[in-house]
Design a binder for these strands. Structure first.
Lengths: 128, 128
DNA sequence: ATACACCTTCGAGTGCACTTGAAGTCAATA
DNA sequence: TATTGACTTCAAGTGCACTCGAAGGTGTAT
């Protein structure tokens, strides 16, 4: 049921180092430990980690994730603030996606230009 | 016609520090200088910089941009290799955009969930 | 004339997010 | 019994991409 740090790291796609780092930075709430003091990751910890990965991979800095986490640990009365943060982040991610798409278009355009050029050179070479 | 480093920085959306850094790292080919030794950015330098920004903003590391730049400066016989690099980068950028979109979906989903929760709480509060 | 805003080089400093190392515990395996 | 491998803590190190500071030159405005 509960996973070791290694198993959790594999599940989430982070290293064990990063998981400890996240805990130490306050991104995770106190994890359960087994009798030897080893961390135990329960399903809800994994859900939370998935969500953190989501925020991190869309560019939210660790300190902001930490702030969000602290609000979440404080309880329901912080919900409006958390909603606000999420809405802002959603918008900034939407902008990022649009920006990426427009950069991608430029790269695609350049690639096509290169492909044509290379093709032309090869045809010219054949004629000689 | 030719711009100073400050003007170029404004045009491209980078700082003057970054432009000097890029030149020093070999991302730009030798810039012209005026009689006092000040850098002059010509339209083709700006085009090149726009493209570099594009590669950087889609996650290509500075060393790889440098490699691409060196190939470009070497001449036409490096075209196939440059095409290959661009095609690879295009694919990785496509993957990145897709990934971002799926992360965005998760965030949107979570935001909606929060919105509903906040709404419910407010309705409950009104009834009291 | 003197301040201001620009430019130059060189080298060092910063911030972020890990990443690694040292030193140690514990349980299972050859 | 000795080694292997997974875990622990705490602190220090790394890599990337800037970013800044010092020291100095030049051109225009008051």
């Amino acid at each position: 049921m509960a996973l070791t740090i290694k198993e959790a790291a594999e599940q989430i796609g982070l290293t064990v180092h990063t998981l400890r780092y996240y805990e130490q930075e306050g991104l995770l709430k106190a994890l359960k430990r087994d009798e030897r003091g080893n961390r135990l990751f329960e399903p809800e910890d994994l859900d939370w980690l998935y969500f953190i990965r989501c925020l991190r991979d869309t560019g939210m800095p660790v300190v902001q994730v930490k702030h969000f986490a602290e609000l979440a640990f404080k309880g329901d009365h912080t919900m409006r603030e958390r909603l606000q943060i999420l809405q802002d982040h959603q918008r900034s991610t939407e902008r990022k996606v649009e920006e990426m798409k427009s950069f991608l278009e430029k790269i695609t355009h350049k690639t096509l230009w290169y492909e044509n050029l290379v093709r032309e050179r090869e045809q010219a070479a054949e004629k000689v």
